[in-house]
């Protein structure tokens, strides 16, 4: 338990057990997903299924936690698993090296408690919301672009992403890209919201928080 001793100032041992037992499905381990994976494991989550079809490339080096000159060309899910096991060897990490699309094997949702959205496009985000809703799983949503980010917890049936991305195919990230600092900030807010949700604290349930680190504006921009 010493590994998690610095977390115990904000939660009890019972609460730590609750975090330990949570089963996570993390879709996308690039910018956001790398920090989400690290945050989950460093907070005590032991059971994670990671889905990603991509390999590390040079343009990932500016921001993706597990992108190094040694991991270029290698599968993101396999490298992420390896690094997570270095943090805690007693994890149950399942890797799925496949593109998340409508043909994805829905068995990946079996036994899952919470889904994390770490993907980088509207089409896949909408698909994940649809599937998470169908299988009655809460979804921790995050998105980034430039100096900005957004985070929210989407409960099954609320269809928030379907609404806010209505008639949209691309977001601001197409132009503003993904600078070094933004995935870590937004990914870690997703982690703190996940913990608040598990511990039944006042989390961003069916709300979208807008984050602007350029001008330090933080505002709920959408809620149901």
């Amino acid at each position: 338990m010493e590994q998690y001793s610095r977390n115990t100032g904000i939660l009890t041992l019972d609460e730590i057990s609750k975090i330990n037992e949570t089963n996570i499905l993390l879709i996308g381990v690039g910018g956001l997903g790398g920090y989400i994976a690290s945050g989950l494991v460093r907070f005590g989550v032991k059971n994670i299924t990671i889905v990603d079809f991509d390999t590390f490339e040079i343009s990932n080096l500016n921001r993706q936690l597990y992108a190094t000159t040694k991991t270029l060309g290698k599968s993101k899910v396999e490298i992420t698993k390896k690094r997570l096991l270095e943090i805690n060897p007693n994890l149950h990490i399942k890797t799925i090296f496949i593109k998340y699309d409508e043909f994805i094997d829905k068995k990946i949702y079996d036994g899952i408690d919470i889904v994390f959205d770490g993907v980088d496009n509207i089409k896949t985000k909408l698909l994940i919301e649809k599937h998470a809703s169908f299988f009655n799983k809460p979804l921790i949503h995050g998105a980034i672009g430039g100096w900005y980010g957004q985070v929210g917890i989407i409960l099954p049936g609320s269809n928030i992403l379907k609404e806010i991305y209505s008639n949209k195919t691309k977001g601001i990230e197409e132009v503003l890209k993904s600078p070094t600092f933004i995935p870590g900030i937004v990914g870690n807010i997703m982690i703190s919201e996940f913990i608040k949700f598990i511990l039944k604290k006042d989390a961003l349930i069916n709300k979208i928080l807008y984050i602007d680190v350029l001008d330090h504006e933080y505002r709920i921009i959408y809620q149901k």
Binding site: G31, D117, N121, A143, Y165, K170, E173, P183, I221
Partner: peptide, 10 residues
């Protein structure tokens, strides 16, 4: 009035 754009990077 506040106007926000879509955001979807990951």
């Amino acid at each position: 009035i506040h106007l926000f754009p879509p955001m979807a990077g990951g």
